[in-house]
Design a protein around this nucleic acid. Structure first.
Lengths: 344, 344
DNA sequence: GCCCCGTATGTAATCGTTTACATATTTTTC
DNA sequence: GAAAAATATGTAAACGATTACATACGGGGC
């Protein structure tokens, strides 16, 4: 492997001069510049970024810790991150980490010295253990709010989004509205449930806990929850699922049971994954700008990196938007923008 | 930031001893071990992986170069990579790179010293320019076959898959079968087209180039191609789209035009993205084990890293599988396995 | 002609580790 | 009980870059 020394020797100068030419720092005569460039090219010299970051203590790399790598959600969030990171000249070091305390801590440790900061997504409520991180390195927490410490965080407007969706159902005349809850101990799930309850309270509808079914964000959970609802004596007329996967599961259960959607039962989801549009009927959902979520997280992190001592802890949320489709009685906008072309 | 020196000073030993304890190399007395561990813990010492890799010349990181980060395909391939990488103790440094020669070369340069090897996906046929990479670093090429150099490559069994799908259509009695081609100058696209033609030849059907429509893997392209086909005097009875997105686009065009699928027109795709199952009717497709593709790429790369001099260049392909659904007259298997639970 | 300054280059310290080698101490072996 | 072997620890040289400081030279100002 050719190093800066090889170039220096070949060009009959010192390494310092080579470094100066390649980084455009310090004055070098034109003739020397030319010679060094020529040699570097001929030898196919490529600087060793690892060595460079050791001395400059900048890696120009951001760590990304995700609990999972399934599905559209993650590819979108990664895309958003990569876009902005790349624009600022940063790379992304991505790792899946168990959402528990130990997993995240280990992962962050493993990243010491290879990244300038970390975006960690840990929707798990227990992850507050992040409190006592070796907080020497800037961190932005995604989809959960750390309690009382100095870590920046970025979340989805879960509560507001859920509240609006349920309000929409109410405005369509529904009074008995069920919710299929998200995973236990999950921040997003908890907030969406809170929004659901607030909307009911807003409308003066009494809470009926038999309408709050457990779920875990999977299609299967949505399916079985819907079946359970159908067996009830006093059926609800609408189902709000805490995410689209469960809404889709519920929809198949309803279809299989011959229940008409939305006439006999309205269905709504959360996230607005591309699939939602394609279901039959298309599912109303709360749109989450996932890509933007990733982008904003990186921006926050970069800010944290450049202003390391500026300790104004930040708490931001990205806002959601209602998307009403046929599953709740809406008319499909014929011109609904198609999803980004997934070349390949 | 606390370094190994701080630990050494505090524990009243030399850095060498600290290193030995932390890496379990060399003999150290139990008492010293205990003391060093205690100090390291108290000081929250975290080794600087960058410095470590400088001396060991191992980064335990793999670079991943993707042309794009949209859609299910990429999240799946990344997941497959991360799974195996993580199992072997490696991280993933992911970067989007323009598929052209310059882009890939720049990206690989930027990764020098931060990764032990690179998986580069460059479906673009022109990317053969990879030939004269600073090939000092192991590379596995995904979804394209480099000409005549020593880079390992991993591709999809495009040709065979397409051939089988078209054979299936023929077995259903179709004789006039159109293809919506993939992006120009794209390896997968070219191979799928080749498979289509081979299948026709196998059945003794004469090739009709008016049935070979241009496309670019986007839904929109599928849509307009289908419209074009409908306008033809002598309509085909089946459409084979080079990927599912285009099949979906075609399907909407047919629906909108009131053409019955599969009775008036059969539709088939390629990739078997999750959406395919959910369409109405569900679309027959050629299943590509994307996750496995990523996993295998990493395995190849790791092999290349450990056996750097073992220059047996490898060319592998992952095999595809026909999935016949209603869009080509199949019966939907009621028990078709649901997609992996996309927990949010 | 001396001093000062700007330009071009080199020398060597540094970043945080690992590790070959040296040294000191203890244990084993005969 | 001395030599050999094993154990425990330290010293210092790497790894491949950047950069503060030193040096050398040529030219102006007076």
């Amino acid at each position: 492997m050719v190093t800066i020394k090889d170039v220096a020797r070949e060009a009959k100068v010192s390494v310092a001069t080579v470094s100066r030419v390649l980084n455009g720092s310090g004055p070098v005569s034109d003739e020397t510049k030319r010679r060094i460039r020529e040699v570097a090219g001929r030898l196919r010299y490529v600087p060793h970024s690892g060595a460079r970051s050791l001395i400059t203590s900048k890696t120009e790399t951001l760590g990304v810790l995700l609990p999972d790598l399934y599905g559209e959600f993650f590819s979108e969030v990664i895309r958003g991150m990569d876009d902005t990171a790349q624009r600022k000249g940063f790379h992304l070091l991505i790792s899946r980490a168990y959402a528990d305390r130990h997993g995240i801590e280990t992962a962050i440790r493993a990243m010491r010295g290879r990244v300038d900061g970390v975006v960690a997504m840990s929707p798990d409520l227990d992850a507050d253990a992040l409190l006592n991180l070796p907080s020497t390195i800037p961190v932005v927490l995604l989809c959960s709010v750390p309690q009382g410490n100095e870590i920046d965080s970025l979340t989805i407007q879960n509560c507001r989004g859920a509240r609006e969706m349920v309000a929409h159902l109410i405005s369509r005349g529904h009074r008995r509205i069920a919710i299929i809850k998200g995973a236990a101990r999950n921040y997003d799930a908890a907030e969406r449930l809170r929004g659901y309850r607030l909307a009911l309270r807003d409308a003066g509808i009494e809470r009926d806990t038999s309408l709050e079914l457990d779920g875990d964000f999977t299609e299967a959970a949505g399916y079985s929850a819907a079946l359970k609802l159908l067996e009830m004596g006093d059926r609800p007329t609408a189902i709000f699922a805490a995410n689209d996967s469960m809404a889709i599961g519920a929809l198949s259960a309803l279809k299989k049971s011959g229940v008409a959607v939305p006439d006999e039962m309205a269905v709504a989801g959360f996230d607005d994954i591309p699939l939602a549009r394609y279901m039959d009927p298309p599912i109303s959902s709360v749109h989450v700008p996932i890509c933007e979520l990733g982008a904003r997280a990186v921006e926050l992190l970069l800010h944290g990196i450049t202003h390391k001592n500026d300790h104004a802890r930040r708490r931001e949320r990205v806002s959601t938007k209602l998307v009403i489709r046929r599953s709740t009685g809406g008319e499909d906008a014929a011109a609904e923008r198609p999803p980004p072309s997934t070349a390949h």
